[in-house]
């Protein structure tokens, strides 16, 4: 197969530069929260360890696998569009979108269990961070799903080409960010003690 002509400068970040401003800002916000979590934990290790054990590690782990796999699908979607295959791209991204939905459902079950146990952000510092971080991340998954849906619809209409796929890369970059933030969040909040 002939190599696709890439009009994007390889030096540049994949996708629209505007999304990268967001990605860097999001990384900063999450980074501060991660570090704040770690230092607050150092103040009261016992409380954090005890509360941490009440979390469902299995659902956290499944969600990690779900997001990693969805990211993998997005990579395949971008590879497809670089060869001009709109339909295949839409299929891969739909797969990623569905996995996003799975993440959301699992997360809501988890939230429901915590709220049913009367746990709120005021319960203690650990739950404050747990609920804040996961909810904040949850909103990003929803946002990412909206972006994916818009790209899927455009791809189904054949809206991208080997010349013009910046839109796909833009959405993909955001989705990968959602993925790697969870990759850090999961061990930090669910596992390490």
């Amino acid at each position: 197969m002939p190599p696709a002509i890439n009009i994007n400068n390889q030096d540049d970040l994949p996708g629209d530069f505007a999304i990268w401003i967001f990605i860097f800002a999001e990384m900063l916000a999450f980074g501060v929260l991660f570090v704040a979590y770690a230092f607050s934990r150092a103040q009261d290790v016992e409380l954090f360890n005890a509360s941490q054990l009440t979390l469902s590690r299995i659902s956290g782990a499944i969600n990690t696998l779900v997001l990693i796999t969805s990211s993998y699908f997005v990579v395949q979607g971008v590879a497809a569009i670089k060869r001009g295959l709109n339909k295949q791209c839409a299929h891969w991204l739909t797969g990623a979108f569905i996995l996003g939905g799975v993440f959301v459902v699992i997360k809501m079950v988890e939230f429901h269990a915590k709220f049913a146990a009367d746990i709120t952000m005021s319960t203690n510092n650990f739950y404050m961070f747990y609920l804040s971080l996961t909810f904040f991340h949850f909103m990003h998954v929803l946002m990412g799903m909206v972006i994916l849906a818009m790209i899927i619809m455009k791809a189904k209409r054949g809206g991208y080409s080997t010349q013009d796929y910046v839109g796909v890369e833009t959405g993909a970059s955001f989705w990968h960010m959602v993925d790697f933030l969870w990759i850090i969040l999961f061990p930090l909040v669910y596992i390490i003690r």
């Binding site: 916000a29 404050m128 804040s132």
Partner: peptide, 12 residues
């Protein structure tokens, strides 16, 4: 207001 606002308010 609840104490968690100290975190949310500070960070954002």
């Amino acid at each position: 207001a609840p104490a968690y606002w100290q975190w949310w308010g500070s960070v954002f």
